[in-house]
Nucleic acid binder design. Structure first.
Length: 551
RNA sequence: GGCCCCGUGGUCAAGCGGUUAAGACACCGCCCUUUCACGGCGGAGUCAUGGGUUCGAUUCCCGUCGGGGUCACCA
């Protein structure tokens, strides 16, 4: 009896690996093409860190004429969530990160290297496990969880390195006969790798992001096939990325420590290892320590959060790209109108330690992104957002489209466009005074600035109303305001006032127009008043001023 | 604790043996302007620390301190 018999005993139906090797041939891509993937567990939740990885992966594949695919890692059935795959695919699509291959929805997939869902690849993993078993490079382990726990405690008490290795690996030295016998008896078992490593020796590894790292060799006989017949992450990673011909594994740096194991797995299996790019996580400051952005504690960890508050996808992507390659913002400054597609991302320019997530910076990028949009785009995006999160606003915007477009187009498309909208949810507040419904329901407190006397305010409004003519061009319009100012004893020109403030105790024309502004909008800060009045129209202006006059 | 990685202003960061140590966000001031925003100009603020190596260290080496990661039949 030998290992071959043992392998047949354990996996009698598994195919020879040559079948899979032929079935999944080398990809026919040009030199330098990067094949990479996003490989999440189907929890439905997409973390900003996951989006970050996917963004980089997709971008790199695209830049090099390679392939970006989506593989679902559902080997831990305890973590399974209903419709988890859909959630991931939707998020990816939302951000324009549609994979070239892989799962398309809960059950369907696209591409020649599938299945792209690990639970469907069980027989493939078993074929490779059998291959290892037959060579004596893997073995069944009959230790129970209790045995392992006991072992761990002993190791801990003795203050030695924990794990299943060397003399602690009880089952590795069982004879084939003994193993057969236990199997016959129906003892439960899992399959472990018989690690050939020696921790006294170092392996050299070059990480695409982190550079050269030396690790001790792995000597842990890690589990490759669990008792449910499914592989562990490590084994699935080696088999899948080999068969799917991944050239670059882009993943979070919590995996960096597993590199010795993974390299060993590739070596034992006779595979060519991929390049690894370990990405530093996005962090959050908590007290005086940093930690990874947490799904449970931080709403901003979920990509859905950005959709909810209405930050354009493009802004999130630009922010992520900026964290990845800090020269991105220089590029952006020089190429204001180009698509991010044209930016050349470089993995080796990435930072090696985790950056603190900066919402303020994100919002600033978002302001810039939105400032580049035309009114139509702003409308489209706001409507898309509002239809989900603010249907009242949606209705208001759709009531009179021509009018809405005018409002959203205010000071837009200029050389120096306004940058006061960071997210679609800001629209409601920023344009409140332009829509009667919003204006009326927002009974916010408002303050006049320099001129606060009620009589004085009324005098200004009254005078203004008598001269106001909708047809006036901007110059005429403002000249009339100057006239009013002068008539009521204010300085006609601000400059004049600044020269001789004593001559004008009441103030200047700027103060007068502030009264006009605040009376009309309840805001001290607005875009150009002339434009606002133009769009609002005579009736609304009169109505709002009369209301104040009648008080 | 073992192993691995990291340590430039409040944040993101350029830098790779000789620099007045870029830039962006935030902050402050001024200018522009009928307000705000935009824009322009200016300001404050950083090489964790101690030893080496060197004519010269933010850059190279070692220690210390600090931070992060990892040590599952989870990924």
């Amino acid at each position: 009896m030998d290992y071959k018999d043992l392998a047949d005993k354990i996996f009698p139906n598994a195919k020879d690996i040559s079948y899979y090797e032929e079935k999944y041939p080398e990809r026919n891509l040009k030199e330098g093409a990067i094949v990479t993937r996003f490989a999440p567990s189907p929890t439905g939740f997409v973390h900003i860190g996951g989006l970050y990885q996917a963004t980089l992966a997709k971008k790199l594949a695209k830049q090099t004429g390679g392939v970006f695919f989506l593989r679902i890692e559902d080997t831990d059935q305890k973590r399974e969530v209903e419709n988890g795959i859909t959630g991931i695919i939707d998020a990816l699509n939302d951000f324009g990160l549609t994979p070239d291959e892989g799962m398309q929805n809960e059950t369907e997939e696209k591409g020649n290297y599938g299945p792209y869902k690990q639970s469907l690849r069980k027989e493939i993993y078993q074929a490779y496990a059998k291959y290892l078993l037959a060579q004596g490079k893997a073995y069944p382990c009959f230790c129970t969880p209790e045995d392992l726990e006991e072992m761990r405690q002993k190791q801990e008490a003795a203050k030695i390195r924990p794990g299943y290795y060397g003399v602690w690996a009880k089952c590795r030295n069982l004879s084939v006969e003994e193993m057969m016998e236990k199997i016959e008896k129906g003892e439960e078992y899992i399959i472990r790798l018989k690690s050939p490593g020696n921790p006294e020796k170092k392996i050299k590894h070059h990480d695409v992001i982190k550079g050269n790292i030396d690790f001790p060799e792995n000597d842990q006989d890690i589990v490759i096939i669990k008792s449910d017949g499914l592989p562990t992450y490590h084994f699935a990673h080696a088999v899948d990325d080999h068969l799917m011909h991944t050239t670059h594994v882009i993943r979070g740096d919590e995996w960096a420590a597993s590199v010795p194991l993974h390299l060993q797995l590739f070596q034992v299996l006779g595979f060519k290892p991929p390049k690894y790019a370990h990405i530093a996580p996005i962090m959050k400051q908590e007290g005086d320590t940093k930690r990874k952005l947490s799904k449970r504690k931080d709403p901003e960890a979920a990509v859905s959060y950005y959709s909810e508050i209405g930050v354009p996808k493009e802004a999130v992507l630009e922010y992520l790209l900026n964290i990845a390659n800090s020269n991105f913002e220089i590029w952006r400054k020089q190429n204001k109108d180009k698509s991010v597609e044209e930016f050349d991302l470089q993995l080796n320019k990435m930072g090696v330690s985790g950056a603190l997530f900066d919402m303020v910076k994100l919002l600033d990028i978002s302001k810039n992104v939105i400032s580049r949009y035309d009114a139509q785009t702003v409308y489209n995006e706001t409507k898309k957002w509002a239809s989900k999160y603010d249907t009242e606003l949606e209705k208001i915007l759709d009531k009179d489209l021509t009018y809405t477009m005018k409002v959203l187009g205010m000071e837009r498309g200029n050389v120096k466009p306004r940058k006061d909208i960071a997210k679609w949810s800001d629209i409601r507040y920023q344009t409140a005074y332009m829509f009667e419904e919003l204006y009326e329901q927002a009974q916010e407190e408002y303050e006049y600035q320099t001129i606060t006397d009620k009589k004085e305010i009324q005098a200004i409004l009254e005078n203004y109303l008598t001269v106001y003519d909708e047809q006036d061009d901007k110059q005429t319009w403002f000249d009339k305001i100057k006239d009013v100012a002068e008539k009521l004893g204010y300085a006609r020109e601000v400059k004049e006032y600044k020269l001789n403030p004593d001559k004008y105790p009441k103030g200047h024309v700027g103060d007068v127009s502030t009264v006009l502004r605040v009376s009309l909008t309840r805001r001290a800060n607005t875009p150009d008043l002339y434009e606002i009045m133009k769009i609002l129209g005579k009736d609304v202006i009169q109505k709002r001023y009369q209301e104040i006059l009648s008080k």
